[in-house]
């Protein structure tokens, strides 16, 4: 069914996962397409969005505050249905800050095995910069049917124990800023301190700040540039398994998208517990400073 919606070609490993603003302009009203806006600032959607786009709030709609985890299968089915999404819908995500939160929402949909997810290259800023129409009108959504499916926490997601046992065995990518990586600070510049006790990184993790994958206009760099960044400089090489992490798993969802869909790495897992969990955990090692460091003996 989903093959009814055309894909765009590019030289990325999985070109069907990325669409341009032109593509969205042309296909946003197709019957099997739902466009979702996911922003860091959750009020931003209300100030104007792509006509017909539906808001998804990463904070209130994807998380379960009681379990400190993502919403459960029933919750996911209900949320998706309420946004007019069926199992075979082509869901196109876009958002602010080079699609950082859009990639995060797309990743959560992937955990639930939603097949046809795509990201709008350049996100919200590019759409607006091109002078395309935005509206404050909230579309009326026709409730869809979405099956209750189990979440797969093994394929695209890593937990603390898995990271711990893979230190020195699998390549780890730390996508936070350099100052967070070295341990100089425990939070992003301009963001409040969130109460992480230790600064530094997971032993052996290579530092590739997430934004290095994006151009000025928020679009992704070319496959050639990305290959140089990750495959060559960060030493991922032909490794068939990678784990990425950041502070709470949002920035590393962006890197997960790059490694998995644009570069075609076979198995990429996002450790969403990330530094907020690792930096505060009892009994897990860290490395301070600019060097990746050694696996503990």
């Amino acid at each position: 069914m989903s093959t009814q919606v055309p894909v765009e070609t590019s030289d990325y490993a999985h070109p069907e996962k990325l669409v341009s603003t032109e593509w969205v302009q042309e296909h946003k009203d197709d019957p099997n397409v739902v466009v979702l806006e996911s922003n860091e600032d959750t009020l931003l959607y209300s100030t104007g969005h792509i006509p017909g786009a539906v808001k998804i709030d990463w904070h209130t709609e994807l998380n379960d505050p009681v379990t400190r985890d993502f919403i459960d299968p029933e919750g996911f089915a209900k949320m998706a249905a309420s946004k007019g999404i069926s199992r075979d819908t082509t869901v196109v995500f876009y958002g602010d800050k080079s699609n950082w939160w859009a990639a995060y929402a797309l990743w959560v949909f992937t955990l639930y095995g939603h097949e046809d997810v795509r990201l709008m290259n350049g996100g919200r800023d590019k759409w607006i910069a091109e002078g395309r129409e935005i509206t404050r009108e909230t579309p009326s959504v026709k409730e869809a049917d979405y099956p209750v499916v189990q979440r797969d926490d093994q394929t695209e997601r890593a937990n603390k124990a898995q990271v711990l046992e893979n230190i020195g065995k699998l390549p780890l990518i730390d996508v936070r800023s350099v100052a967070e990586y070295t341990g100089e600070t425990t939070h992003m510049a301009g963001y409040p301190q969130e109460g992480t006790l230790r600064g530094g990184h997971v032993p052996t993790a290579e530092s590739v700040p997430w934004a290095t994958a994006a151009n000025e206009d928020g679009t992704f760099k070319s496959r050639e540039e990305l290959t140089k960044l990750y495959t060559d400089d960060a030493g991922l090489g032909t490794s068939d398994q990678v784990i990425a992490y950041c502070r709470i798993g949002e920035r590393s969802a962006h890197t997960w998208f790059v490694l998995k869909h644009l570069l075609g790495y076979e198995s990429v897992r996002n450790y969403d517990g990330s530094w907020t969990e690792w930096g505060n955990s009892v009994g897990v090692p860290i490395v301070v400073g600019a060097e990746p460091g050694q696996a503990p003996k």
């Binding site: 600032d41 959750t42 009020l43 931003l44 209300s46 100030t47 602010d96």
Partner: peptide
């Protein structure tokens, strides 16, 4: 900036 409606609010 207008891109920061929560902060502005």
């Amino acid at each position: 900036p207008p891109e920061a409606p929560t902060t502005r609010g």
